[in-house]
Design a protein around this nucleic acid. Structure first.
Lengths: 250, 250
DNA sequence: ACGGACATACCAAGAACAGGGGATGGCAGC
DNA sequence: GCTGCCATCCCCTGTTCTTGGTATGTCCGT
């Protein structure tokens, strides 16, 4: 029976034309897989304004309200863990994936009180384009249907692909391009060097370094170092490996 | 059978300790799925220096040699398509995903001549950390085993996860733990807010924000904001999702 | 009940940076 | 030859950060 499950769902998704249809399909399939709730979120990075993204779920109203009003998305440990894994993960694994603060634990507890026990979240990223998650959750008193997690992985991936296809046709993506020198300055900055230190390292003037960083900030339309570093990291212009190794060496 | 296959493979991977073992496991599983070849590549983010990463495959020598000597990786249409999809794709879909140049088509033709007919590639990204693909291919005269593509998706994902785990052993490291308040300040800082702005947002004094950041820097043993943000991002204490959305909103 | 971790608040000196100007030379494309 | 982009350097003003302190009250676990 499971053999065809994924294909069935895939076929179903081909005909999906709207958010609502996708939502209904997901609701049904999550029940059939033995879950009580689903949540799909897709954030598109369109350079422009229009609110890019999609959030479909059938979480209890209470939880949804709490989540939105307190802007818990900004401190959701599940979302953070999504940046660490290629594959879906059960929430029990969170502790092994990322450090949990007290607030994180409390958040999970509040979730339980609102009817979300534990879950399995499928993370997907497209650098510079989109990031998405698809979560399947069960009520507090229940366990995850372990033998269906592989299916959940597939179903989640399919749903996210579908959501992506539903989104705005991605056109002129303007990923800022930095010059080599700008990038070099940026890397050293990310490594924690000051402009003056960077200047010595690169053998140029302090002012020049500041100028490069200034121009880099302009291109990324941010106005401070932190944001610049974060943006460049996210776009893949620089990578952690470029930086982290230098943490003990400096 | 479906569910078990994936779990079997997953169980097998848990015991994998080295590249070679992973390679062998992949070779075997790809045969069982009805493919003739596999290729797994994992690039860990480091723009420069030694290329840290992993390439496992059992492609014909001829093709491997051509691919490497002409540095075809830089112009591989399959790799380009990987930046467009959450889910694995059959190479027949390439045209619908990205524009194919003449060179691209030629490359696919040469591949065929070397014994690689068509394939299914599973792409995965982790912003700032890694980028990986797992491909299952068949000989020129054969078709993809359509009904096993869902399994290939799972198997590919598992293999990539395994490869990632094999990589930089971020094992018994003492990851600094920040208090919730410290983390909040950190998040707003990463979003590009100054201490004063953060203070207003959190409804506390500017000096207090500075104090929190001070203590956070101490715990991470860094002495500037950028490094703090980078370190926290790398450790997963904060995630890109916490930050990026706020780039246009500020 | 006590120590420890946390949140809050303040002070002060000096370094570093953001944002605003200009200015020069090199090099590629049209 | 002009234009545009890049790299380099310089100045200035005001703001923000870093780093070193001190101090109070709360909450939690043992």
């Amino acid at each position: 029976m499971y053999a065809n499950f994924a294909e069935e769902f895939a076929t179903e998704l081909i005909n999906v034309q709207s958010d609502t249809e996708l939502s209904e399909a997901l609701a049904e399939v999550s029940r059939r897989l033995g879950f009580d709730h689903f949540a799909l979120s897709l954030e598109l990075r369109s350079g422009s304004r229009e609110a890019p993204g999609l959030l479909l779920h059938d979480y209890p109203d209470e939880w949804a309200k709490v989540y939105v009003t307190f802007d818990l998305a900004g401190q959701d440990p599940v979302r953070r863990a999504c940046d660490k894994s290629f594959i879906g993960f059960a929430w029990e694994m969170l502790e092994q994936m990322i450090p949990l603060t007290r607030g994180d634990r409390q958040m999970l507890t509040v979730g339980k009180e609102c009817g979300i026990g534990t879950g399995y979240t499928v993370p997907r990223h497209l650098p510079g384009l989109a990031r998405g998650t698809c979560t399947f959750a069960v009520s507090p008193d229940k366990d995850l249907p372990r033998c269906r997690l592989a299916l959940a992985e597939i179903v989640g991936t399919l749903a996210l692909s579908c959501a992506l296809a539903l989104g705005p046709s991605r056109g002129a993506e303007t990923v800022p391009v930095l010059s080599d020198r700008q990038r070099e300055c940026l890397v050293w900055t990310a490594r924690g060097k000051t402009a003056a230190e960077t200047a010595i390292i690169l053998g140029i003037g302090t002012e020049t370094v500041i100028q490069h960083l200034k121009m880099a900030r302009e291109r990324y339309q941010v106005h401070c170092k932190q944001s610049l570093v974060v943006a460049a990291l996210f776009d893949g212009l620089i990578g952690f490996a470029d930086i982290i190794r230098w943490r003990d060496a400096d």
